[in-house]
Structures are given as C-alpha cells and as structure tokens.
Design a protein around this nucleic acid. Sequence first.
DNA 1: TCAACTGCTCTTTTT
DNA 2: GAGCAGTTGA
Length: 768
Amino acid sequence: MSSYLSGLNPPQREAAEHFEGPLLVLAGAGSGKTRVLTSRIAHLIDEYGVDPSAILSLTFTNKAAGEMRERVRTLLGRDPGGMWIGTFHAIGVRMLRRDATRAGWTPGFLIYDADESESLIRRIIRDQLALDPKRWTPRVVRGAISSAKNELVGVQEYTEHALDPFTRTVAQVYERYQRALRDANAFDFDDLLVKPVELLRAHPDVLRRYRERFQFVLVDEYQDTNHAQYVFIKLLAGEHSNLFVVGDDDQSIYGWRGADLRNILDFEKDFAAARLVRLEENYRSTKRILEAANRVIAENTRRKGKTLHTANDAGERLTLVEAADEADEATWIVGEIRARLANDAALGARSFVILYRTNAQSRALEEALRREALPYRIVGGTRFYERREVKDVLAYLRLVANPAADEAFLRIVNVPRRGIGDASVARLAEWATQQGGPLLPAAVRAAEIPGIRGGAERALPVLAEMIEKHAALAGHGVALDEVLRQLVRETGIAQMLRDEGPDGEERLANLEELVAGAADLQARVDAGDPELLAELEEVGGTELRAIDLFLAHVALVADIDQHDPGADAVSLMTLHNAKGLEFPMVFLAGMEEGLFPLSRAYDEPEQLEEERRLFYVGITRAEQKLYLTTARRRRRGAEWLDAVPSSFIESVPGELLETRQTPRVQDRFSGSRPWRSAAISSQPRRRTRLGLEAAPPPVDPGYQVDYADSQDAPRLIKGARVRHPQFGVGTVAELSGAGVDVRATIEFDEVGLKKVVVRYANLQSEWE
DNA sequence: TCAACTGCTCTTTTT
DNA sequence: GAGCAGTTGA
C-alpha cells in the first residue's frame, strides 16, 4: 500500500485509491475530505503513474485551491507541475484567454464585478430603454440575468420565453447588456462559467483537446455546483468519466447563487456505474457538538442522509446565552473569550471565531473587541478590493489596460473632482454613442462636442491624455507597480486622500498595499514563476501583460482567500465564509427568529432548509466548544425589534444545552421565567390585523416594546387590489412572513409579479 | 446652467 | 458605499 494511503480509514482509503470511473464521495463535516482529495492526487501521480497535466481539480475558493496544491506538493515532495488546480472561475478565465478570439473577445479581456454589471444595467435601463430604475431595479434585473446565465439560458432563449412584462424587459436589457460587455471586451462573473461551456459546445476541436488532456477531473464542494458548472464538468469528463466529486449535500448553502442540490442528489443517475463512498466518521468535533449537528440536520427532508459519529470525547455541553441586546451580547462574548484565554494556556486568540448570519452584525462585536483590546480579524464585510479608493485606482488601471472600459471611465471621470459634472458626462456619452465608440477616445475631442464648455472642455482631454500616457508606459515594459504608483500620484488621488485627513491616510495605506500586490506579481513575472509561465504558455502565442493578469487576479480573489489562520486574532465572519474552516471555540451570534433563519427564508420550505444547513455548517465548525448567543432586542436597520430565539435551537436536545443569562438580563428581567420556555416551547400564535399568523413579541412587564407600527400597516388579504407608488396597481397573490416581516406577492398589471415588504411598500388601496 | 455638496435611502449570504 | 433629491454657490 502506498504511503499516501496509510493512516486513512477504510472508506477514506477506498475513495483515495479509486482509479477509473465516476465516484461520489459524500463527505461529512470534519471527515477528512481534503486529506482524501490530496492523497488521491498524490496516489494517482506516484502510484498509477498519471501525468500531473492530465489532472484537473476544481474548487470554489482560491484558498481551497492553494491549500490543495500545497498539500499535494508536501505529499509528493515536489511540485505537481502542469496540473490545473483552481476555482471554476479561474479555470474558465484560463480557457477563455486561450480561445477568446473564437468568441469575439481578445485575450486581454476585463472581468466586470457585480457592481460594474449593475451600473451598466442601470445605464441600459435608464438611458437606452428610457425606463425608471426605481420600477425596474437594476439589482433585480441583474439577478434575473445572472440566474438565466447560471441555467445556461442565452439571450435568444430567454427572449422566446419572456411572456410577462418583467421578463420581457429583462430580455431587452439582457440583449443590450451582452452587447455592451462584448463592446468593452469584458465578461461578467457568470460569463466566466457560461462562455467556457459555449466554447466547448461550439468548437469540437477545443472540446477534444481538453478531453484528451484531462483524464482525471476532481471537483470539491460538488453540492455547490450550479447548472452551468454541472454541464462544464459533464462535457469535460464525457468519455472517460474519470470524475471524482466530493461534497456534502447537508452543507449546500449557495442555492441563491444557482447551486443545484440535484447535482449531488442525482449523481448516481447522471453518471452510469457511479460509485458512492460515505465518509461518516468525524475527526473534528466532540460527541456533544456532533450530536447537536446530527439532530439539527435530521429535520431536513431533501438529503441523501448520513449520520456522523466520532471517537472524540463527549466534551462540554453547548452553551445558550441570552443577552439584552447586541451590545450586551458582544460584551458577553468578549468577556467569555477573555475568561477562556485566562484559564487555558493552550488557547490563543486564533482559537476563537464569531460567526453571524449578516455582515451588519459585525459592528457591535468589533466595538466590544476593540474596547477589550483583543486582536481580531474580520473576514468579509467590506473587502479590500471593494474599498472606494482601491476601486477608483483599479478603474484607472482598467482604463489604462483597455480604453473601451466605459464603466471604469464613468467611475473616475470626476474623481478627484475636476469640474466634470453630470451634464457634461451626459453630453459626452451621447456624442460617443452617435460615433459608436467608447467614452475615453471621445473625451480627447471634448472641444468638438456641443454643449461641453468651460472646465469640462479643458479637463476631459487632460484626463484622456494622462491615461494614454500611462497606457504607453505599461506598453513599454514599465513595471506594473511603477505604473500604479504614478497613477496614484498623477491622477491626484493621493492628494485628494491626504486632504481627507486621518481617514484618507488609512485609505492611502490601502493603496500602498495594492501597489505592493502589483509589485509581487511583477516580480513573479520577472522571475519566471513556473506557475505563471505555465499559465502564459497555455494561452499560446498571445501577448498577455502583467497588467491583464493583475486585473484578473483582483477580480477573482475572494476575501476568504486572504484569511490567514496563522495570525493570532479572533476571527469574525459570516457563516457562509466559514465553510471549510474549523476552530476550537465557536460562537454563533444572533440566534434569533427572523435573523437566523432570516425572515426571507420563510417563503419556501426549500429556503428554510438551506438556512438550516447553514446552521449545521456553523455547528460543525466547532472542535471543542460551541456557544449560541441570542439578544432580546436587536437593531434591524433603523429600528429596534424585539427578538425571539431561533426556532432552530429547538432541535438541539435540552440535555446537550446549558442556558446562561448575561448580568444585564438577570438585572433587568430578574424573576422572569427562563426565556427559552416562555418564548420557544409554547410560542403562542395569534391573528394579526393582516390576517396572518405571527409570533407576538416576548411579553415582559416593564420591557419597552418598540414594535413596528402595525397599526399603520394596511389590511391586506389575498385578492385585494392595491396601488404601489412605483409598480402601479396590482392584485395580491400571496402573503408570507410574520410580524414586521410580512411580505406580499403582487401581480401588478403593468410590471408583473413582484414581492414587496408590506412595511416598506407604502401600499394604498386601488382607489386612493 | 452646471458643479459641488448635504442629507436621505437601502444593504442576506458571494465566486 | 452608492444613488438620488434638494440646496447652494459661481
């Protein structure tokens, strides 16, 4: 037996040793799936003599890809040169670089992030279609287009099936949107999955090339694949079907992104003679934590079904904490971390993670950590590449790389302020459209454009020249970091930030970090980094510059990729970001109805199951100790809401739990029954004025109730005719949710089906 | 008339 | 943070 397999348990070994044909590894949380994947790759190469370049390994984060490559390297004692390991998106980019021209793009294409896609869509709705962006929300339209793409529904097919007003409008936007992307030599995020599929489908020679090359295809987190990714995998693994996928249906948490649970549930139907291996032994958590996880997930119906077991100790009971509000919750958590650190020398700040459902929850936690001077790291939230100053400089760089990048031009045309306002930009855009060209070249000729005068007339050509100058620098082999440094200086961004005071200094420091990142990449290019060279070589004879690689890199890295487990700091992140990670001590904050599960998930049983899987993911991050914390009052947006503990907690058997109250809760609510029994066990229901079932706020004498103004909510019943300020008149088709979260699905006469939050929607009766 | 600024709104989760 | 409405100042 090869050394790569020693130490694996029998099912792990069975999976890692597998040679030919499709295999699904149903890997429970903490069952050593990364080990199986890496052992398998090493085994394929060293024991079966497979050429590394015949292996394609697909992941969902760069972090997972990087770790996998690193571990394989360690196992083999050398670099598995030629092997492709990367995210679906990165692999897609690689394929598109090589064959972009076949699709009508050039290899230096740009990648539009969600914001750029949205602003492009907004412009199409407002300027090209002359529609009201309030009525046709760009966000929603983008979502519809994105879903269509993930289902591999192209413009033509979408248009053919667009029957109601909403989809008909989306179809129009979709068509123009794709054209605009093409004109800007850009792909959006979804295109990075869709276009490679189109490429493989439309060009048999390309498909043959990759099929012959990749004899072994591995997919991590298979439960997160959407339809486009499924087809991509199926195309590549077509004939040999040496497809090895690893996943856990219970950890599928990306349904909203198009992930299709059917891919994993139906794997054995989709791939003939597929084998199935279950990894049900957990090496991560204590018995109590695992028991809680098993009980929670058992409530779900759509699953393959497996029960994890562990040889680990029983461990401590789970702790359920009641706090007065989110500040109290944060204070208690931080105090508990302090106490644990003081009592156990084996623990460091890095042993703790605080998980939450929404990014907004990080604020209170952050404040408490800062007050207590505990080092912490937020993973996610406003990510580095989403900071204003970083996006501004990157927009300049995109423009330098590609003069047709209109979105980038619009972002920076007046940043810093140079006297070019909306009116001038509108004239410029109008003129450019007439000429059928992009904005930057039009700016050079500002003097010829009617209506552009004064400051703007002078500033536009200056801006254009400055960008052209840098494009020339980049074209003449000036190092990327140098180009960036000059851009920061000569655009005036540096000065602008310095004038903003201490905040600006911090932003400037971020830009230095960005420049350092560029220097890193430039150094790798100069030193002939083998991985990078291989990538460039794959692309063939095309000329690809460091600037293109850099822009692709910043578009594709996720924040989780930057998570450094070595740093001694408490981690804060969303539950979504926590997948794949493990920590000795885990806090799940904000375990309240409406927050977790999020109220929006009540509409569909399927969505509620996904929230429950998210809870399951959270529980199974913990090695030794799990805390569930709740607050009695929580701010949501501008108002304070009374909170009820999450119904998810009910599935955790009482004997696994100990319940605690923070001092503030004990003070304020002394004598009141434990909350759990009052609020959860009986959870009385009542009829509201809306005619809906809703849980009442917890009743506590002397407790201030700032419940939403339910008196002002209109009386809604199914079938009622209502008027909405934007969408016009419509008929209530469906009501869902409870209390302040009541939502109505309304069939509007003009815009079709829409779902609105009743509290915000400002509905009136048809006659008003 | 245009640019700049101020204050208001909304923000689930992310490759 | 981004869009938008309304206001101020040139």
